[in-house]
Structure formats: structure tokens, C-alpha cells
Design a protein around this nucleic acid. Sequence first.
DNA 1: TTGCGCAACGTGT
DNA 2: ACACGTTGCGCAA
Length: 158
Amino acid sequence: MNYSAEFLGLPLIVTVEDGVIKKISYEKNNLLKKNKEIEREILKFWKSEESSLSFVVEGLSEKVRKILYKAAEIPFGKVSSYGDISKAVFGSKKYSRLVGYAMSVNPLSPIVPCHRVIHSNGEVRGFTGSLKYKIKLLRLEGVPVNNGKVDKAFFARL
DNA sequence: TTGCGCAACGTGT
DNA sequence: ACACGTTGCGCAA
């Protein structure tokens, strides 16, 4: 079932089946009426709070799915790097490029918080949508971004 | 300190 | 064959 929801001013279409969120996409001009309950649950995921819904990642390779599940563990107000996620999932940083790919095809933004994945040196770059939006989200979470960089103190331990 | 070339990964074109 | 939401390394300014 598809629901329409607004997240921080952006219109989303949320696909839910049996209490499981399967897909979230940004839709500029959708005509569905907004579902307040879904909106609340999405907000909970964003804030790393308990939700009555769960989610699954489907339709992608095993490696890419593992990456996305790991990225989903990055808590509100923290960040991680492509390399750290690669290390956490596969024990090596050599898949960091693949982590970037996984973020770019992330079917569950913002539940899988791809905006919290940045470069290992703290630089905030690379986002399929606008980079301004990625930085805006981080600031809303209390993560300072100065000269396009995040302090090492905000890196989460996965 | 900055920059550039490189290899390694999997996916889409 | 090539380009990607990368990374660390070596080596040159």
C-alpha cells in the first residue's frame, strides 16, 4: 500500500506491506493525501526512536543490502564514513566505493540515513539530491558543518 | 599542505 | 570499456 507523507517539507511516497516499510521515494507533485500516522513513524526512524513499523531492503545484491542495514545503525546526530561502513561490514575498507554506490541507490531514505555517510576526512560531499539538503539535515540533527567538514568527534562507532 | 595517479569493489550503460 | 556519493598510498610541488 502506498502512502503520502511529508518529511521536513519534502513530499514522500511510502510503500508499506504488513507493517513493513519497503520503499520510500521522493515525489514532487503527488496527489495522494497525507497520512499523519506514517509521517510520525518516519520522523521516529529519523530520530532513532522506536517505531511500530519495521523495514526491509529488497531488490539489491546481498552486499549492498548489508551495507544499507549497517548504515541504518548510524544514530541521530552522528555520522560515519564510506570506509568505516565497509570495514564494519566486510572487515576491510576496500568496499568503500561500493558503499557510495549503495547510498546512491538507497531505497529507504531517510530511514537508511545516507545523509550521515561522509568522507573519512570529515568532508561532506556526494549526494544524489542536493548537497545543500544533506548539510541541512545534518545541521538539523545538531551536527555542525564548518567549511564543508564535520569534526571527528561526531563519527559514530559501528 | 595541496594535488595527482593508482588500484580495488560491484552495478548500470 | 567506462563512470560512480571512496580510500589510502606514494610522490611531487
